[in-house]
């Protein structure tokens, strides 16, 4: 089947497929960022984490022959980089944003350095989960071949929602994010809680990288993340620090990313390069519409970004 014969449906299916495939890294990094920000810290370094995750997943998958070990390595690498970020931002007078940029530069440097020999060879990929068996259309089958990490991300989204709402630890994270002083009075250590939130969030971000290099686009290149880790910060604002809304937001962003290529696939290449900017423009528009100088946003942690 060619895309001509289904015409404009090709675009719709393309965007849908992109929403799931391209949305998975958004989902994982935004969940990671959500966890971190709920504890009151911002991690702009997730872009570096994503690159580290992508590189280590690919390299380890190539070396061991198992993409699953690769994904584990990505989470580990993300966690280690997160630890470095935590050590920085949990010190007094260190600005979260600046530390994030430092981690971004360092993380991408390390990823490019050790990733150089792995640009050529091809590593075993994560197996896709086929949900499109009912359709005879090739495009639909391809669109519904879903990354196991997407399933994992969806599960984490609902789990994290439950975690924040009902568990004791979830409440600790929220308390620390809203008022470190009050949390300390309750006997919760803000430093320890934030440390774990940042490290766990970065491990999730690392898994997002594993999806990039081991599923879609499915190769390790230095331009693989193209700012997705940075957009996580905007996505979390859009999702109002709510894990399940991170899921919907990620799907939206993944879809927006796929508009340009899908249009090109049906022969419309006008403005191809401009469509590439659509996720970024969408993020900006969302922020312009939802932010305000007058009030803080609902769901925003009270002490977000403040230096405690």
């Amino acid at each position: 089947m060619t895309s001509d014969s289904i015409g404009w449906w090709g675009v719709v299916i393309g965007v849908l497929a992109g929403a799931i495939r391209g949305g998975t890294p958004f989902l994982l990094v935004s969940l990671g960022e959500c966890l971190t920000e709920k504890s009151g810290k911002i991690n702009l370094g997730l872009e570096g984490v994503l690159l580290m995750g992508a590189m280590s997943a690919y390299a380890i998958s190539y070396k061991t022959g198992s993409p699953w070990i690769g994904a584990g390595a990505a989470a580990l690498a993300g966690g280690v980089l997160g630890m470095l970020h935590a050590l920085l931002v949990l010190r007094p007078k260190v600005n979260d944003i600046a530390a994030g940029i430092a981690i971004l530069i360092f993380g991408s440097g390390i990823a490019f350095y050790f990733g150089k020999p792995f640009i050529q060879p091809s590593a075993p990929q994560l197996p896709g989960i086929q949900l499109g068996g009912w359709s005879s259309l090739g495009q639909i089958k391809a669109a519904l071949t879903i990354s196991p990490l997407f399933i994992f991300g969806v599960a984490v989204a609902f789990l994290m929602q439950w975690f924040f709402r009902t568990t004791r630890w979830g409440m600790h994270v929220r308390a620390v994010g809203d008022s470190p002083a009050a949390a300390r009075a309750m006997g919760i250590s803000p430093t320890r809680t934030r440390f774990f939130s940042i490290v766990a969030g970065s491990a999730l971000g690392g898994l997002g990288g594993a999806h990039l290099s081991l599923f879609y686009p499915g190769a390790w290149t230095e331009s693989i993340s193209s700012g997705q880790g940075l957009m996580a910060v905007a996505l979390v604002i859009f999702a109002r620090w709510n894990p399940t809304q991170c899921l919907w937001a990620s799907l939206l962003f993944g879809g927006a990313q796929a508009i340009g290529p899908s249009l090109q696939a049906v022969g419309i290449s006008a403005g191809y390069y401009l469509w590439n900017a659509s996720p970024y423009i969408l993020t900006l528009v969302v922020m312009i519409l939802t932010c305000s100088t007058k009030r803080t946003l609902t769901g925003a942690p009270g002490a977000l970004g403040a230096n405690a």
Partner: peptide, 27 residues
Amino acid sequence: ILYYKRGVNETISSLLLNYVAIAFLNH
């Protein structure tokens, strides 16, 4: 303007605009 009129975080917006600028350049 986004920061003073709408309270949009200047770090994020300036960063997103980097990608928009590069897309403009390519276009």
